[in-house]
Nucleic acid binder design. Structure first.
Lengths: 241, 241
DNA sequence: CCTTTGAGGTACTATGCAGTACCGTTTAAA
DNA sequence: TTTAAACGGTACTGCATAGTACCTCAAAGG
């Protein structure tokens, strides 16, 4: 079976193509059905968790018989693994941190905003909820999720910082700096979303948080004083400063 | 039934006491057994999750009959809730952020170290794993956990910052500042522990991370330049600065 | 001392689950 | 057109589970 990325298929004339390769109709239908199963299973796993989700219920929603489901995924574990891999690929997709030309503060604000958006996206939140309890029972799966999802985002951020802020920070450890930026930008929202403690943040709140994270980051890591935002310009600063 | 805190009982002479109140032996034994059940149930829930854990298995490990278990907790949900409440109380217990007399940097380092210790403690990590997937199915329970556990720690940190750093920071929002300190100190370790991605951090690593978080925090939030650690003294700084 | 209460033991009910067997029908590939 | 595979439907097998019934025994409380 050829490599394929997150259930993407295209039909061209007589034949069905996938990633430029020509395949039979039978196989292409199998891939489509596979993707459909994963989508349905994802809903169930997200809502009920691994133990709570039922293969029978998934098969029922799929429409066909149980035999069909089992012919694609020989066990619940393998179906779950497929969901995790597919979702991790979906989460990392489409990273563009390009905000060339703006000031360092604006660039970092934009980056922080992207990070926040990504970490509070429903699919990410639900994936976090789903994957956390697996670390005791299936550590390898958690590792796969991390490598294919968050790890790549981490890497992109570190590379972005190295490329665009190489001379502006006092550290060479761009991975650590990136982690700190992520922490400053998303930590609050992450826990609030994960635990459903408050209504999802509005775009305005996300903007404000992103800007604040950028300011804090530049003050903490900025090499030159001109990078440090004046503290009386920051939201939450005392009036008496 | 009188209020009692995280399975604490003391025997004094003829009578059994709890929080200064005199109670019968029968009742005290019930409380002891209750605490014992919670302890056993906690293990099971931590290892297998809510759906994965089995009341029968818990009853078996308890030793008695199932009837006994059900006479204490009329359903699996209520037992789970009791475990959550008890554990949340245990997590927050014993907060002492008193490091009077040291320099601001040393105080913040000590505070960060405490935060790290608390967030990477096995009981906290396992509780996070257990509680995350509950937010869809039992949001109220997650709320209770948060209010009785992390929320109180948050509050302690904010109050500590207000009391000891009231004049040193440029912000009045001590809750936000506290959250940012927590993020800087524990975010990395939190995810690594939660997902079991690497070996638990050594005390040395925790010390280093705590110090770094304190430095970053003071540079980001410090009101006066003398609070900002020289950047060539920080681990990970470039040699060429 | 006697009564009430709780706990142990065992067997039970009802339910839901993952996974299988069988068989007739559809359908893609040759 | 033929053929082999995949699909749909239904019924099934074990198995584990939450929770119940019932009886016996120990012990706390008055």
């Amino acid at each position: 079976m050829p490599f394929f990325e997150s259930s993407y298929l295209a039909k061209g004339g007589e034949w069905y193509h996938i990633g430029g390769m020509k395949i039979g109709k039978r196989e292409s239908q199998r891939l489509l059905k596979r993707a459909q199963i994963i989508a349905i299973a994802r809903e169930h796993f997200f809502e009920k968790g691994f133990e709570g989700a039922s293969m029978s219920a998934i098969a029922a929603q799929l429409g066909g018989s149980k035999r069909t489901l089992w012919s694609y995924f020989p066990s619940k574990e393998e179906l779950f693994a497929a969901v995790v891999e597919d979702t991790a690929a979906g989460i990392r997709g489409g990273i563009d941190f390009s905000a060339v030309g703006d000031s360092p503060l604006d660039q970092l604000t934009h980056l922080s905003r992207t990070i926040i958006e990504r970490m509070t996206a429903p699919i990410a939140v639900q994936m976090f909820r789903l994957i956390s309890p697996m670390s005791e029972r299936n550590p390898e799966l958690v590792r796969i999720f991390f490598e294919r999802g968050p790890r790549r985002t981490q890497k992109s951020i570190a590379e972005y910082l190295r490329a665009n802020f190489g001379d502006l920070l006092w550290t060479d450890d761009y991975w650590q700096a990136g982690d700190d930026l992520v922490a400053l930008a998303a930590s609050n929202f992450h826990f609030e979303s994960l635990w459903g403690l408050s209504n999802p943040p509005t775009p305005k709140q996300k903007d404000a948080r992103a800007r604040r994270a950028a300011i804090l980051f530049l003050r903490a890591y900025g090499r030159h004083p001109e990078l440090w935002a004046p503290i009386d310009k920051v939201d939450g600063a005392r009036e008496t400063v």
